[in-house]
């Protein structure tokens, strides 16, 4: 490998569309989320630097854990989830075609995006607090309903393009039209699945404040908490980019400036949808969530997929 290529690779890993860009996007979307929700509620909301200040402060805080906690695992779990989200971002073409696409990277991405939820569950067990354990258990219960929904709804795009490769999904959309129009139902259910993944209202059962304090993260503080928060914020960007790639590809040219702007615009619009949903709905109860997902959303998604298959 020659020098230019290596530099380019490093640039792609650390600056764009790698870690640095993701970090900026994650902080920006998190701020946008809080600002929008505040505006919906008739408040002014935090200034633009708020997520950054929160993270810096948390990184500089004392890191304590309850006695009896396995310190190794307590440190490992947020790292694994952070790493898995970052790895996922490399397989995902964010505005520019990045990683080499291969048959099945769709599934790899799915797996990498679902790892943080599992780590979240384990985090509850590792820290041993009552609320942590309940929060972890709830996240696992929820996991089985939204993860299936997310996979099924997203795989509609793979079925329609006839390939499990992200690049092919994009090519198919450029050839025909973006999947958002024929698969609007699939898109909405994917969004619901993503909300579950991100543990946002109304799917915020594992971290419901008035019930289990802060869920599995109750006992975390300092750096580890910051890492967890950062993971969730990064997950928002990666998840939304995944959705944009699978449903909106074809609206922009890859690796051009205008394409980049369109991509960012879509990111902001989708984040706005997430914020609006958060502001409108009350938190669901776990039985209502399971009912909603298994009896209504998943059968509808299956029907939708069958329709796509037959078409």
């Amino acid at each position: 490998m020659d020098n230019m290529n290596l530099l380019g690779l490093l640039f792609r890993i650390f600056i764009f569309p790698g870690f640095f860009f993701l970090l900026i996007a994650a902080l920006f979307l998190h701020w946008l989320d809080r600002k929008l929700i505040a505006r919906f509620q008739g408040r002014i909301g935090p200034p633009w630097y708020q997520p950054l200040a929160d993270l810096v402060k948390l990184f500089a805080k004392e890191d304590i854990l309850p006695s009896g906690t396995n310190l190794f695992f307590a440190a490992l779990l947020p790292l694994i989830s952070f790493a898995s989200v970052l790895t996922a971002s490399f397989y995902l073409p964010i505005a520019i075609q990045s990683a080499p696409s291969f048959q099945g990277d769709f599934i790899v991405l799915m797996f990498l995006l679902s790892l943080p939820s599992l780590m979240y569950f384990l985090a509850g067990w590792v820290t041993q607090g009552v609320y942590s354990v309940i929060g972890g258990n709830r996240s696992l219960l929820q996991y089985f309903s939204y993860e299936v929904l997310f996979l099924l709804a997203m795989s509609g795009t793979a079925i329609a393009s006839g390939s499990w490769s992200l690049a092919d999904i994009r090519l198919a959309q450029i050839k025909e039209s973006p999947y958002i129009f024929p698969q609007i139902v699939g898109f909405l259910f994917s969004l619901a699945g993503l909300i579950g993944k991100l543990k946002r209202e109304p799917y915020d059962i594992p971290k419901a404040k008035s019930e289990v304090i802060a869920g599995a993260l109750t006992e975390f503080s300092g750096k580890k908490l910051a890492l967890w928060y950062l993971t969730i914020q990064l997950q928002t960007v990666v998840g939304l980019s995944f959705l944009i790639h699978c449903f909106f590809s074809g609206f922009w040219q890859m690796s051009t400036f205008s394409g980049f702007i369109v991509f960012l615009l879509l990111l902001v619009i989708l984040q706005g949808m997430l914020s609006a949903i958060s502001a409108i709905y009350a938190r669901l109860r776990i039985d209502q969530l399971v009912y909603l997902n298994w009896y209504i959303f998943i059968p509808l998604t299956l029907l939708h997929n069958v329709y796509i298959l037959l078409k």
Binding site: I37, Q41, G42, A208, K209, S210, A279, Y281, A282, R283
Partner: peptide, 16 residues
């Protein structure tokens, strides 16, 4: 009540 069932918007409106 609204805050406790996760409906923060209603909490804000009622208190406003």
């Amino acid at each position: 009540l609204a805050k406790n069932i996760g409906l923060n918007t209603l909490f804000m409106y009622a208190w406003r």
